[in-house]
């Protein structure tokens, strides 16, 4: 190190072209090395900041299928807080009998309510309507062709499961907010409130029926 040349031009025996090439090549290599090393560190830092497992989903138990008859529904709240309508629409004995629709309007996030008399979901905010399959039929969602998001369901051993996002903060299980027309397990009092649910759910996270209870 002590015998370093202060001016490379002095000590170099190579021609000017070769020197220039060497300088360019080594500078490029250095830049690549620095970019690679610190760049990778930067990527790791970015990945650290980006939420870990942002969309982790899990199968959660909802209810025994025996509690549903065709037309019955319940309101389910997933572990991360989303509210979901689970309705039995058929009697074939599999998961295809059921449909799980988010009760959150895809337009601006209000809570939709089932109107049995009109056979539709109704959103009170901007008069949006959806049919029983969750397709937008009127109002802004109908115009834009929006749908109520659907959640995958499966039936295993007479038990109904739903696939929902799992938040690290939340409890690891979902809960049934409102059994409505679904019969509870034997022994529990039957709480029939009729289909359709409370648009005020979004206001304070509590159902009218819960408060009554």
């Amino acid at each position: 190190m002590a015998t370093d040349e202060r001016d490379p031009a002095d000590s170099s025996e190579d021609g000017p072209d070769r020197r220039k090439f060497l300088a360019t090549a080594s500078t490029t290599a250095m830049a690549a090395g620095l970019t690679g090393g610190y760049g990778a560190f930067g990527l790791i830092a970015g990945r650290f900041l980006y939420p870990a497992r942002p969309d982790e989903r899990q199968w959660q138990f909802v209810a025994e299928t025996g509690r549903f008859e065709t037309g019955d529904s319940l309101l389910y709240r997933g572990p991360s807080g989303e509210t979901i309508n689970v309705v039995r629409q058929g009697n074939a004995g599999g998961a295809e009998d059921f449909i799980a629709l988010s009760s959150t309007c895809p337009h601006l996030g209000c809570q939709v309510a089932w109107e049995a008399q009109n056979d539709r979901y109704f959103c009170p905010c901007h008069n949006g309507t959806f049919d029983a399959r969750g397709l937008g039929t009127g109002g802004p969602p109908g115009d834009a062709g929006m749908e109520l998001p659907r959640y995958p369901l499966k039936v295993d051993g007479g038990l109904l499961f739903i696939e929902v996002p799992v938040d690290q903060l939340a409890d690891k299980t979902g809960e049934i907010l409102d059994t409505r027309s679904v019969r509870p397990p034997a022994g529990e009092p039957l709480g029939i409130h009729g289909p359709g649910h409370d648009p005020c759910l979004a206001c304070d996270g509590q159902s009218r029926f819960d408060r009554k209870a």
């Binding site: 790791i44 830092a45 990945r47 650290f48 980006y50 870990a52 497992r53 690290q168």
Partner: peptide
């Protein structure tokens, strides 16, 4: 604990 065990690369940082 979250940083160490759950966040991506948290243990490394």
């Amino acid at each position: 604990r979250y940083i160490t065990h759950e966040a991506s690369f948290g243990w490394f940082i």
